[in-house]
Design a protein around this nucleic acid. Structure first.
Lengths: 228, 228
DNA sequence: TATTATGTAGAACGAACGTTCGATAATCCT
DNA sequence: AGGATTATCGAACGTTCGTTCTACATAATA
C-alpha cells in the first residue's frame, strides 16, 4: 500500500536527490535500474537483475513502483524533462539564430555524454512504453523536436535559406543521438569540442547546401536493384 | 538432425531465394522473423511469436536453425553482407572523391529505406550477439566503417581539408542510421532525394567547417551544470 | 513506551520462456 | 511401389519471468 504516484518531487516536478526518504531511495533505485537497462536492455533485464543491483529484495522494489513498465517511464520522463528544462534556461537572452542552434547542440551533446546510460535507455527503449506512459513521453519528445524545428526556421528566415527543415533537424538528431553507440571517452573529444564540430557540419551544411548560391551539386543516379 | 550450418547458399555466400528447398524455406522464415524482431525487438519476441508468424510449429522451426540467437545472427549477417557487396559494385569505376562519398550515402540510405525492418534489427539489436556470432558481425561492420573512413580521407587529401575523419564519419552514420526511427514514406522524400540532402549537409559541412578558410566559428561556452 | 506508519523480505503464484523428444507426414529416389 | 530421407508436429521439459501475499522489522509519533 504505497508506491509510485506518491513520490513527492520525482513524479511531479524534479530533482530526485532532495526530498523525502522515499524520494531519495527511489532515486537510487532508478539510478541502478538505469545501469541495468543500459547493460541488458529493458526486455532483457529482469526484475531479479534490478533487485540484485539495488541490493533490495524483489518484493521490496514493488514498494516503490508498481510495475517494471512504470519504472522505465519514470527514468525516461525524468531524463527528458531535465534536458528540456536546461535547454530553456540556456536559450534565454540569446538572439542570434546561429548561436541559438549552437546552444541547442551543445546542450544536447553535453547531456548525452554526461548521462550516456540514461540516454541510451531513453533512445533505445523508445517504443516499449504503452498507452498513457508512452503518450506522455512522446509528448515531451515532440515538444523538444518542435523547439529545434523552430530554431532552424529562425535561421532560414534570417539568412533567406531554403531547405527542408524537417530533414535537416532529423539529420541533426541522428548525428547527436548516435553518439552513445560509439563515443569512447579515452579517445574521443569532450562534449564542447564534439558539439562544436557537429555544429560546424550542420550549420555550414545547411547554409551552403541546396537552395543557396553555388552550382547545383551533382547527384547520383540510382540503378535498379533487387531488394531481398 | 539437420539445421543451420547446412544451408547451402545462405550461410556461406548469398542469395537466399534461390537454392535448395531448405534454403528457400529458411529464407522465408528469416523474413518473417525479421518482421517480428522489428515489431517487438529481439528479447521481446518469443519463439512462439515467430512460430505464429511463420505458420510453422515451434518444434518445426528448430529444424532450420538451432537457437534464437543464431537466427538473429543469420539475419544480421545476410543484411550487412548485402549492403557491403552492393557498395563495392557501385564504387567501381568512380574516381571523384566527392562523388564516391555521394555513392556511399546513396547506397546506404537506399538500402535502409527499402529494408527498414531488417535494418532496424541490425542497428537496434547491435550488441545482443555473443562471442563468435557477435565478433563476426562486428568484423563486417568494422570493414564497412573502414571503407567510409577511407572515402573521407580521400576527400580530405584531394581538397586539402583538415578535420577529424572519425567524428565526421560517425556523424554521417548517425544521420543515416537514425532514419529508421522517423521516416514516413507518405510524407518524406524518397531515398534519392534524402541521400542528396544528407550528402549536401555532410559535404558542404566538412568542406567549409573548421580548418578551411573563413572566420573561425563562434562557439558556445559551457556553463557549470549539475548532472543527475 | 506503546502505537501507528513506513519500509523490507521469503516464499510462492501462474504464465511464458527457449528448447528437446519421439512420432508422424510428406517428398524423393530407384 | 517401397524404402530412405526430409520436413513437420504435439506435448512436454526445466527455467525464468513479473507480480503478489503475508509476515516481520524499523522509524516516527504520541
Amino acid at each position: 500500500m504505497a508506491s509510485a504516484t506518491r513520490s513527492g518531487s520525482l513524479s511531479g516536478g524534479l530533482p530526485a536527490a532532495s526530498g523525502s526518504r522515499f524520494d531519495r531511495r527511489l532515486a537510487k533505485i532508478l539510478q541502478h535500474a538505469t545501469e541495468v537497462f543500459w547493460e541488458k536492455g529493458y526486455e532483457g533485464a529482469s526484475m531479479r537483475d534490478l533487485s540484485r543491483a539495488s541490493r533490495m529484495s524483489l518484493a521490496g522494489l514493488y514498494y516503490y513502483f508498481d510495475s517494471k513498465e512504470k519504472l522505465l517511464y519514470l527514468i525516461q520522463k525524468y531524463t527528458f524533462t531535465t534536458i528540456l528544462e536546461r535547454l530553456r534556461q540556456r536559450l534565454q537572452g540569446v538572439d542570434d539564430p546561429e548561436q541559438r542552434i549552437r546552444i541547442f547542440i551543445q546542450n544536447h551533446v553535453e547531456y548525452f555524454l554526461a548521462n550516456q546510460k540514461a540516454v541510451k535507455v531513453l533512445s533505445h527503449e523508445d517504443d516499449v512504453l504503452r498507452n498513457g506512459y508512452g503518450a506522455e513521453v512522446a509528448a515531451i519528445k515532440r515538444e523538444y523536436y518542435r523547439i529545434c524545428l523552430g530554431l532552424v526556421d529562425e535561421l532560414k528566415a534570417a539568412k533567406g535559406l531554403q531547405f527542408s527543415s524537417r530533414i535537416a533537424v532529423l539529420s541533426l538528431f541522428g548525428m547527436m543521438n548516435w553518439i552513445y553507440t560509439w563515443h569512447n571517452p579515452r579517445i574521443d573529444a569532450n562534449a564542447g569540442e564534439l558539439a562544436g564540430q557537429m555544429g560546424d557540419i550542420f550549420l555550414y551544411g545547411v547554409c551552403r547546401g541546396r537552395g543557396s548560391s553555388g552550382p547545383p551539386p551533382k547527384r547520383v543516379s540510382s540503378p535498379k536493384v533487387r531488394v531481398m
